[in-house]
Amino acid sequence: MRVFQSPAELKNELRSLDGSIGFVPTMGALHNGHISLIKKAKEQNDIVVVSIFVNPTQFLKGEDLEKYPRRQDADKRVCELAGVDYLFYPDANDIYEKDEVSLCAPNVRGYILEGSSRPGHFSGVLTVVMKLLNIVRPANAYFGKKDAQQLNLITLMAKQMFMDVNIVPVDTMRDAFGLALSSRNDYLSAQEREEALKIPASLKKATSMIMSGICESDRIIEQMRAILSPLEISYVAVVDREFKPLQRVEPGNTIILVEAVSGTTRLLDNIWL
């Protein structure tokens, strides 16, 4: 595995290669969810590139930029063991300049759900993903379904900007108790982790309701909120694949989303139906 910091040097190296490139952009603190993305990239491509970059522009003032988990040596070892070919480890100064061109998230989809409480967050996400995709120029780029709104917006960006890349969704990985894997799970105390299990429990309840024929969104949301209590609930939503609210579940076109806070840690989860 070769490690690069310079965008120009990585770009030149990759341009000299033959074969398809699969790209997994991450913010590090790698876990089995990231490994599942890498495995999918290895299955579908000749060359795998992973980036590790804690992107400052997607953090709002007062959020956890400074304390976000950073494990450079451990992450490098994970990538080596997973068979990554190239690891891109840039510094913020390698990615951003003082007078920056940046992308703006869509006026509607970028400011609902997670975007409503984190205005500007998705603009930062889209800007850095655009930069990384332009550096790596992959055939395929891999993103987890857990961050469903982010995945939707990145897919939309690739389409609207006529980018020559296939955005590949990968199923959410969970721990033995059902909690969706996230680097931010490191913040949870034992008690907070136990409380956080209310999140997958609420989604399991939604699934059982739908399987029993209850498909009205308001009834599903009501029951999910009851299970999530007393967690601080940011939102529970039933939307279609384009993130428009649904009155009823539509099989094959529905995502049920949850954002809740355990302790001080914001956690996302969802199911795709």
Rank of each mutant, 00 (worst) to 15 (best):
A139D: 12
E63S: 12
G62H: 06
Q149I: 14
N93C: 10
N134I: 11
K98G: 14
S51E: 10
V125F: 01
G62F: 07
E100P: 00
D73P: 00
P119I: 12
N93W: 06
Q44G: 02
A105C: 10
D75G: 04
F122C: 09
V128M: 14
A74S: 08
P138Y: 05
G110M: 13
F59R: 08
L103H: 05
L151A: 13
L151H: 04
E80Q: 15
I112V: 15
D46N: 14
L87M: 11
V48G: 01
I47W: 01
Q58F: 01
S102G: 08
Y96N: 13
M163G: 09
A148E: 12
Q44A: 03
A148C: 13
L126T: 04
L126K: 06
L37D: 02
V165N: 05
F53S: 02
M163I: 14
E80L: 08
D46F: 02
L30Q: 04
S116Q: 13
L153Q: 10
T155K: 13
Y86L: 02
S51A: 11
Y142V: 01
P138K: 06
I35T: 07
N55I: 10
L156T: 14
G144Q: 12
G115W: 04
G115I: 08
V50C: 07
H121R: 13
D85R: 00
D94R: 04
I35R: 09
H34P: 09
V136I: 08
M161V: 11
K159E: 15
E80H: 09
V54P: 01
Q150T: 12
D75I: 06
V78E: 05
P56C: 12
K98W: 04
A148R: 02
V129T: 06
G83Y: 03
F59S: 08
K61Y: 04
M130T: 11
A92M: 03
G124H: 08
K42P: 01
L156N: 06
M27V: 09
A41Q: 03
V54G: 08
V129G: 00
Q72F: 14
A82G: 10
G83N: 07
L132A: 03
E43W: 00
Q149N: 13
N93I: 11
R137Q: 15
L133G: 09
K76T: 12
A74D: 10
K159H: 14
V101T: 14
V136L: 03
T127E: 06
P138S: 13
N140I: 00
D99C: 03
I52H: 10
F122E: 05
L81S: 11
L113A: 05
V136C: 04
S123N: 01
V50S: 04
R118C: 09
V101A: 13
Y96A: 12
G120P: 06
I35E: 05
N152V: 06
S123A: 14
C79F: 02
A29F: 08
E66F: 00
S51H: 10
L30K: 06
